[in-house]
Simulated scan of single mutants.
Amino acid sequence: MLPSVSSEALTRRGLMLVLSSPSGAGKTTISRGLLKEDDALVMSVSATTRRPRPGEVEATDYFFMEPVDFNLMINRDELLEHAKVFGNYYGTPTAPVETALAEGKDILFDIDWQGTQQLGQKARSDMVSIFILPPSTDALERRLKTRAQDSDEVVAQRMSKAAEEISHWREYDYVVVNENVDQCLQEVKTILAAERLRTSRRAGLVDFVSRLREGY
């Protein structure tokens, strides 16, 4: 009697799930929901040259670095993406991401369209990108004002920037409209579930099918 084929042989390479949206469209809320409900998903940890804030933990919140060391990583091409924001550098180190992907872990990225472009240039086959849209411009402005984190001037700046950010929606694999946060979260979870089953990510599939055809 031939031994049976075990589906445990269907090992899978991890993926990079990228979420982008204009400020106030719900990207952070969706990210938190995913991480809370999916133990197989971990948040990408960025490197930064800014000083740690109270309560922040090294290698959990950020990899805190000196500017000279960050620039060395740029020169050595050791970052998947990076940008300078308000005088400080932020970027995603390549090594820990590659290790996690090889181990079959999925990594969540909360980045803008510019970071997504850089990520796609370095690792497009591992990336699944989703752009989150608000249901309307009025709803976006209302959400920005309701969360009461910014002054009216900052809200106006964010609204002005939103049009430019939204113009990049065609560059993403998927677009979801966040009219209802629970429904939006479910749609993102459905995308993630389907992408995990993509043939190209399942490293052991060729051998598994071969053994099936041989009668094992």
Rank of each mutant, 00 (worst) to 15 (best):
L212N: 15
T60P: 01
R32Q: 02
I132C: 05
V181P: 12
S7D: 13
D182A: 13
G104I: 02
L192C: 05
D152Y: 09
N88D: 14
N178T: 09
S167E: 03
N88F: 11
D173Y: 00
Y62K: 06
P22V: 09
L10R: 09
M1W: 14
E214C: 15
P134F: 01
S136M: 12
L15E: 05
P3N: 14
E8G: 09
I132F: 06
E165C: 09
R50C: 07
R196D: 10
M65Q: 09
G55M: 05
D182F: 10
L140H: 05
R211P: 10
M16R: 04
Q118A: 10
G204V: 11
V45W: 02
T29Q: 06
K36E: 03
V175C: 06
Q157L: 11
T137W: 14
G204E: 10
Y90K: 06
S210W: 13
L212K: 14
G14V: 02
T199H: 15
N178E: 10
L192H: 07
A139I: 13
I74A: 03
R170N: 00
T146S: 07
D38Y: 02
L41P: 00
D38L: 03
L80I: 07
G104P: 08
R50A: 04
R147H: 09
Q186H: 15
Y62C: 06
L41G: 00
P54F: 01
L17P: 06
H168E: 04
S160V: 08
R201E: 06
G14F: 00
D152Q: 13
D39Q: 08
T137L: 13
G204F: 07
R124M: 08
I132H: 05
E141K: 10
P135Q: 08
E103S: 05
S44V: 02
V18Y: 03
